[in-house]
């Protein structure tokens, strides 16, 4: 049972980790909590579902690629649009304004999907064959392996992008200081938009994985995972990208063990308590990335 729960936790953790990256990247460059990110996650799942339904071809590698491409591109584009419309005009407003604006966007996107697509849970079709392996009383499915490895690959790609490309380096510079980056010839607005695109895209991929894993999606599916992914980001130190990945896995495992060994009814409470306790005791996160307070 221990190993089984660990596998469940790692799968859940990979989704949280991917999802948490969007929060942490945006926080890194803008110092704001992108509350609407949970809706970006939800939109990703819906884009993926749309693609799954239109695709005529049977299960294949390219089909899978198309599904993820659609979800990531769609989510990324919406995230960028949201930044342009709702956050950029507020860049110099008091700190709480973008947060309130983000909540407004969140309400809007949820209700938009609810009214246009439907208020009911929608099943994710099982187009791709899933095999299960049994060993030592543990069941491991190909889907779980796929989720874990896709998440890890995407995270490695992000890491590569940040370290090796000009854009990635510009993004890191912007996160450190807007003004100085601008003086170095970086177009800060473009970089911020790009951050939203990349973060949103990863969130969208997490949304599809979530849909594949649970088999059903709903217009308000983003809320709970959103808070948890944010918790993961906080655990790793908001703004710290590697921290967010680690935080995601830690939280996923923690949640599954809490549900399995303590009480499945209180698993969400446990995630929220972790959030509160970490913010109060160690707001810089477990990995000690210093979050500088800018007054």
């Amino acid at each position: 049972m221990f190993i089984q729960q660990l596998i469940n936790g790692l799968t859940l953790g990979s989704i949280y980790a991917l999802f948490a990256l969007g929060y942490t990247m945006v926080y890194g460059v803008l110092l704001m909590i992108n509350f609407a990110h949970s809706e970006i996650f939800m939109l990703g799942a819906y884009c993926g579902l749309g693609m799954l339904c239109v695709l005529p071809m049977a299960a294949s590698g390219p089909a899978m690629f198309a599904v993820f491409a659609a979800a990531m591109f769609g989510s990324g584009a919406v995230a960028m649009l949201v930044e342009r419309v709702a956050y950029r005009p507020l860049r110099h407003a008091p700190r709480l304004s973008p947060l309130i604006s983000a909540i407004g966007i969140s309400i809007f996107l949820q209700n938009l999907i609810m009214l246009t697509v439907g208020a009911q849970s929608m099943p994710y079709p099982e187009k791709f064959p899933i095999r299960q392996f049994e060993f030592w009383g543990v069941t491991l499915s190909t889907l779980q392996i796929f989720i874990f490895f896709l998440a890890v690959i995407l995270m490695l790609l992000l890491n590569l992008f940040l370290r090796k490309t000009k854009m990635g380096k510009a993004m890191q510079a912007t996160a450190q200081n807007h003004l100085v980056s601008q003086l170095m010839g970086i177009n800060v607005n473009t970089i911020i938009a790009l951050t939203f695109f990349v973060g949103g895209g990863l969130g969208g991929a997490a949304g599809v994985l979530n849909g594949l894993y649970y088999g059903s999606i709903k217009y308000n599916m983003g809320f709970f995972p959103g808070i948890k992914a944010f918790t993961a980001a906080v655990l790793g130190g908001v703004g710290n990208i590697k921290g967010a990945m680690a935080g995601g896995f830690i939280l996923g495992i923690l949640e599954v063990f809490a549900a399995g060994y303590l009480s499945s009814e209180y698993k969400d409470v446990i995630a929220f308590v972790v959030l509160i306790v970490v913010l109060i005791i160690k707001p810089g996160g477990l990995f000690g990335e210093q979050v500088t307070e800018k007054i």
Binding site: Q4, M221, A259, S264, E265
Partner: peptide
């Protein structure tokens, strides 16, 4: 066992 309406992840409970 009781579950929460709207919850999506029952794997931990089912494993137990």
């Amino acid at each position: 066992d009781g579950i929460d309406l709207g919850d999506k992840d029952f794997k931990a409970l089912l494993t137990t």
